[in-house]
Design a protein around this nucleic acid. Sequence first.
DNA 1: TCCTATTACGTCGTCCGTAAGTATT
DNA 2: AATACTTACGGACGACGTAATAGGA
Lengths: 313, 313
Amino acid sequence: MKIQQLRFLIEVVDSGLNVTLAAERLFTSQPGVSKQIRLLEEEAGVTIFERSGKRFTGLTAAGEAMTRAARRVLLEAENFKRVADEFRDESAGTLTVATTHTQARYVLPRVVAEFTRRYPQVRLAIREGDPHRVVENLQRGEADIGIATEALASAPGLVSLPAYSWHHLLIAPAGHPLLAQDALTLQTLASHPLITYDPAFSGRSRIDEAFRRADIEPNLVLTAVDSDVIKTYVSLGLGVGIIASMAFDSQRDSGLVAIDVGHLFGANITRLALRRGALPRRFAMAFVELLAPQLTPELVSAASREGGQSYDI
Amino acid sequence: MKIQQLRFLIEVVDSGLNVTLAAERLFTSQPGVSKQIRLLEEEAGVTIFERSGKRFTGLTAAGEAMTRAARRVLLEAENFKRVADEFRDESAGTLTVATTHTQARYVLPRVVAEFTRRYPQVRLAIREGDPHRVVENLQRGEADIGIATEALASAPGLVSLPAYSWHHLLIAPAGHPLLAQDALTLQTLASHPLITYDPAFSGRSRIDEAFRRADIEPNLVLTAVDSDVIKTYVSLGLGVGIIASMAFDSQRDSGLVAIDVGHLFGANITRLALRRGALPRRFAMAFVELLAPQLTPELVSAASREGGQSYDI
DNA sequence: TCCTATTACGTCGTCCGTAAGTATT
DNA sequence: AATACTTACGGACGACGTAATAGGA
């Protein structure tokens, strides 16, 4: 049994049982993959793939279990290499962070600034996408760290930790009548045209939930991925905006006034996720600590190892 | 990086940094091992072994961490094979149980009888030794299951579960004055010549502890590994014996009388141990369940995966 | 008929074993 | 001087790529 055979096996499974596609992704020849799969099956004495003639049509029960076991082996093999990398050059390498627009635009800049100062040799890549994209990036091992408010907590194969808590702000042009209100309610809010985030972004679920629970239909005139877009249209008088607290800067956003509406929509927890079982490199843990000081390297290291879902044979 | 290189690395470390010995144990040539180690170091770009000239004198910090990581890879590789074995032939294979004399002689026979009836295809091997030997067998992967009353709970690299509880018996020839005593005390006991287990066996630690706490010096005239030896000498009138409750059978041991002295020495818990992270085969779990019905396969399977000690780089 | 996996075959790499060399105790 | 690792070299196996073949959709 060779590591590469396991790699082939996993790639075939992840390519939807298409050996040709798997071979392309592995930058090798299709017959080579085919043969190694066969050799693996012979050595194990077990049929991994259900075949109808020459097509792979599914995984046998053995194949399911062996795929899971193979993933573990590969994960540990990656970790081995990562340990070596760590010692070869403590402070060089690549750190890929998958996150959403709001985080990338308003939260990460100060973290990135400090990080690149401390680790000038680390190539930092930020992948922006919606929360499900973030999850996917992590699951595939294409990103080391994921940061998002949605989708991370329950994703299989990942561990997530709370990074920080925030709430929503209402923004409106200076002088807007809503700003003079004493106790703002959802009812009042619903009587104005609203601009906020796209579904699945930046705590939008909390907003929907609050209105639904109150059985009020908000008047959403525009939704955006991007807080800047929201602010722009609010400035133009198209409506009042609801944005994440960290997206507002009273200096930069002069002309707009923000008031706290945390009491209406509750607190949001932005979480940080890692692939379960994948040991983060030291500089990755440093990045995490810069983002959320309570997440010490020890804590993050322990979390990455914790709770491997037990798999039965 | 190849699995075999990791195997070589671990064997060299476990051979006390002696490459020649490692090569012998691996049934291969010494230069081959030497070369693969070197290749591994080159590929990783890291020095694993400290050398003084041509001798290996120690592990570098990187070597320590990489050794730990390599062990994990190998453990998962073994698990992969075990999964394959499980499916190739659900009910064939080898089960090695490491245990102490008392367990092997008095507890396991009924378990083994039932097990071999249910799994006639499984080759069952019982390795007898003192508790530290049991631990060693497990740690080296030479045994699948360890059963002992001592040493298992705190052993690194193992997980242990309580199997059953027992207590000590006092045995004496029929008619012995001690048997007529109403409330037996340590003090009374100490006034007779005693025969019991060797240190580190069958709850001997509890016996020592009880006497030490009462600040009484017992008169140990003979110690043995083996309850049968103890019974023999008790029959000969050399003294009174203290043995494990499961070692006495009033039928077979006629001529001897036993009384419970659990109130003097407390309860002993015989534990069952597995190598941490090593997935037991189904028949191994069946063996465990026969021994201790409360240890269900689900529970054992979960335990084997639990609490991987986190390792830092 | 197209697509996909297997079979066949030649080449290159690499792993392993033997033998000689060199450094350390 | 003995022991232990490294270097050198030759042989054999194995992995991979190309080309041809067979089996399904």
